[in-house]
Structures are given as structure tokens and as C-alpha cells.
Design a binder for these strands. Sequence first.
DNA 1: TTTCGTGATGTCACTTGGTGTCATCACCCT
DNA 2: AGGGTGATGACACCAAGTGACATCACGAAA
Lengths: 197, 197
Amino acid sequence: MSLGDMTNLVRMRWEPDAVGRLQQAAFELFSELGYEDTTVAEIAARAGLTKRTFFRHFSDKREVLFGGSEQLTELLVTGILEAPESATPMQAASAGLDACSQMFTERHGFAAQRAELIASSPELQERELIKLASMKAAATSALVQRGVPETTAELVAETAQTVFQVGFNRWIAQDDPAAFSLLMSEALEDLREVTAL
Amino acid sequence: MSLGDMTNLVRMRWEPDAVGRLQQAAFELFSELGYEDTTVAEIAARAGLTKRTFFRHFSDKREVLFGGSEQLTELLVTGILEAPESATPMQAASAGLDACSQMFTERHGFAAQRAELIASSPELQERELIKLASMKAAATSALVQRGVPETTAELVAETAQTVFQVGFNRWIAQDDPAAFSLLMSEALEDLREVTAL
DNA sequence: TTTCGTGATGTCACTTGGTGTCATCACCCT
DNA sequence: AGGGTGATGACACCAAGTGACATCACGAAA
């Protein structure tokens, strides 16, 4: 089988990083022409590839915009699992969100652009929502792994998603990339106040 | 063609209720063959129509399963708006959920079947999620209409969605169709406990 | 009764997302 | 130099949607 493949200085065959080129081309074209008016063939052409190759790297047209979601899920899950044993379920979930803050802080501008693009297309919104749901499911099972009862875990994960959605919207609506964790905490605090009534 | 058809009040042209026939045919075929393995042409054929006519009544293949969502949204919104003026935002949102209980209670079996079908297909899950998001947006603006500040309204609507998702899952997992409102209340109570920690 | 307008449907051609299959080509290893 | 391997290209194909135009069933007016 393959032995001497990808060294870390990676010189892949042909032009390197087909995935990256496709993502870049797609982001540009979606921004220029709009999602619906961009064709997969156009994306592939700008990346110097063909339609068929696009679909070898991405399961569908939307997926090209959702590259980092697996890593983000992993950050979230490990953040939950590595929370102190004494932490309540909700505190563990918050730790999970905090563990994601670096990823977001480094890409404040990009995240905002991307969010705007997604907001412009129902198809992309649908995909975004199911990605969030998938992360919610991952968080649930991480909580269960911590010994939290299933029903509680589901509720906490659902609540964490609420906190994230509210906090994220506030985060991209302001200028400070580093405010991520703070805004998440504030969102949770506001949620407590609102449900208390 | 058939003249003595079944309508007792309204006599539509050709066979009556094309929309209903398409919904029925789609639900049957999705259950029999699965969503992905059912073709729009097949659905239309079973309803005695053509593919083109299907797309005149439904904007896409998924939409045929989401008929009642506008009415449900209206129930939710009027429930929120008609809550007593003294109600807190969260109480108003709960009143909105309560206003939906009749709709659900009457269709416990159907709702469960439908939920199972949706759970079987990512495409359908995406559509379900965006419908929920749309209802959340409607709830938000209803709350704003009540004088609730925008940020609070968003948070409350998001929280209400959490309550609904948890409560709904518990509702279809048990036998009593009438337990809807009760399960919603319990979900909110559980959420309070969990976030308090 | 005849005619006419209207709305729902059928027909057909077309674009695009997505897939299966096979050929090709660049690279690495022996 | 030759062989294996994995990424790509080429091509045919299916299904979701859409636009344009014809058609048909009705109700209403003449």
C-alpha cells in the first residue's frame, strides 16, 4: 500500500490542495454571483478541475462551505469531556463552547462573511442548521459519556445550542474577535434570567 | 371522466383536491420505498397527475410533507399575542406552545409516523429544521409586537424552541395524545433546573 | 345553445445537481 | 525501466426543477 505518501512538507501530485482551491473558488463565486447563480462546473473550472472531481471531494454543492465542522465538533466534544469532574452538566457544556473560542477568534472576519452568505440562501441555511443539530448530538453523547442521564444530556445540549446561537449572533454583530467566550457567558446568564420568570 | 365524485359541497374541476391526493400519495410512497427511492414522477402518477403539476403545487419534493406548517405558525403567533398583558415573555411563549396543542393532540399517530419518516432522511431533517427556525422567527416578531425588547425576544423564542423540541420528542415517545401541554410544561421546568446549576 | 374566458393540467425541451464507469496520468517504489 | 496506486478526466445517465405553450373543463355571458 501507500508508504511514502504525504510527507509533512507535502508536495501532492499535480497542483496541490485541490480541496482548498475548490473551497476558495466556491467562496469567491458565491460572493460574486450568489449561491444559486453559481454552477458547480464554474467552481471546478476556476479551481482548474472538473465537475466530477468536485463531487469526489464534496458530497454536494453546499458542503464546500462547511469544511471545518468536524474539527469544531471535536473541539466541542473534548472540551466537554475534559471539564473537571465536579462540573455540572451545564458547566461542562459551557466548557465545550469555550473550547471552540480559539477557532472562532482567529476567524472573526471570515465567520461574519460566511454567515452573511449563508443567510442569503435557504439551502445554505438548511445545511447550517443540520450541522448545528449534528454538533448538538455529539455534545449529548459526550455528556452521556460523563455520566449525565440521557434526558438531562439532551436538554443541556439543546440549551447549549441556544446559548451558542444567541452568543454567536452577538459576536459577529460586534467588532472584537476576542469577545467570544464573554458573549457566550452573557448569553447563558440572560437565558437564566429569562426562564426564571 | 368521473363526474359523480365525492365532494358534497364544493365541486372542483376534474378530480378534486389535487394537493391532498399528492400529499397522500407521497406519504404512502415515502413510507413504502423510502424518501430517496421515491421519484416525483411516481408520486404524481399515483395521484393521477404529472410531475409538472406536482411542482405547481409544491415548490420542491420535500415540501409535500410540510403542509400544515403555516397554520401551526399562525396558532403559535396568535397564542403569543393573545396571552394576558401581564404575562412575562417566557409565559407568553408558553401560551403560544399551548395554543398548538390541539393541532398535535388530534394527530398523535400521524405525527409519530411523520417524525419517523423525517428521521430517516437527512434532506427531510434539513427541511424540518428550517421550518422550526421559521416558526422561531415568527415567535420572535410576535414577542416584539408585545413590546418585548428584540434581544430578549430572540432569546425567549430560542428557548421556546428548545422546550418544544424536548417536549415533542417526549410526546411522540409515549402513548397519550393529550399529554402535549403537560409535557411542554415539564420540559420548561426541567430546563430551569438544568440552567440553574 | 353557442361562445368565450379562465384556471388547472399536460407536453416538451432544457438546465443543473449528482452518480457510475472506465480510461488516463502522475507519482512512488522496486 | 516497469508496475502499482491514487487522483483526475471523459462520458453517459438519472432525477429535480423550470419555462413556454398547448389543451381541456368548467362557468358565465350572449
